[in-house]
């Protein structure tokens, strides 16, 4: 494809697995864990970060030659904060219930280390189009982990996906519940998010031995 050279494709695909922001680079964990009890909240969070990171990378990349390096952190923070305010206001206007569940974690996208990390490491030194792709790729890598964690926590915790019962009805004992299956309410509590991510890291690193760390 002429639109995306091989190098550009790698910009998007690398962060999805082998250079994933959450499981490998250890960035942006803060907001990732707290809101993954439901799949819907995880998807909205992933989309918000996609918007902020994609657009923020473009803005920073456009300004990269005029930002004095001494005050670049403040400039970056202002750009992110402005984008996050847009996301927050849009969520409040069109998905009020959801914005209540996400609460302060929308605001915390500002200090999501993935965003500052990509600004510093990529957008300040690269062109607009490549920065955009890099932003989209990293946000997607972040989103994938969020969605996987949200999927398992909602499925095992409340037996639903996006609010639809998929394992049968626990009250009328249909589906899986007819053979004695029970929801594991523990999955909805916040510590389980950490453990699920820990297990994900385990799976990923046993598949790809090159990623194993020294103790």
């Amino acid at each position: 494809m002429a639109l995306l050279s091989k190098k550009d494709t790698n910009l998007i695909l690398d962060p999805l697995a082998d250079n994933n922001p959450i499981t490998i680079q250890v960035l942006g964990i803060c907001s990732a864990l707290a809101i993954t009890a439901e799949l819907k909240a995880s998807i909205v969070m992933a989309l918000s970060v996609l918007f902020v990171l994609g657009l923020g990378n473009v803005v920073i990349s456009l300004m990269r030659n005029i930002i004095p390096s001494k005050i670049r952190i403040i400039v970056q923070l202002v750009v992110v904060a402005a984008l996050v305010i847009i996301v927050d206001q849009v969520l409040k206007a069109f998905a009020y219930e959801l914005s209540k569940t996400l609460a302060v974690f929308v605001g915390l996208i500002i200090t999501n280390c993935i965003i500052m990390g990509r600004f510093e490491a990529f957008a300040l030194g690269n062109g607009v189009w490549r920065s955009f792709l890099d932003g989209i790729g990293n946000a997607a890598g972040y989103g994938i982990i969020l969605i996987i964690v949200g999927f398992f926590r909602e499925l095992l915790g409340s037996g639903t996906l996006l609010g639809f019962p998929v394992l049968g009805n626990p009250i009328e004992k249909t589906g899986l519940y007819s053979i004695g299956y029970e929801n594991n309410g523990f999955m909805l509590l916040s510590p389980m998010a950490l453990i699920v991510v820990g297990l994900l890291i385990w799976v990923q690193r046993s598949r790809n031995k090159a990623l194993i760390e020294e103790n």
Partner: peptide
Amino acid sequence: PPLRGLGITFIITG
């Protein structure tokens, strides 16, 4: 080995 470093830290924190 695959849990070393980050993985085990996550689980301990949990």
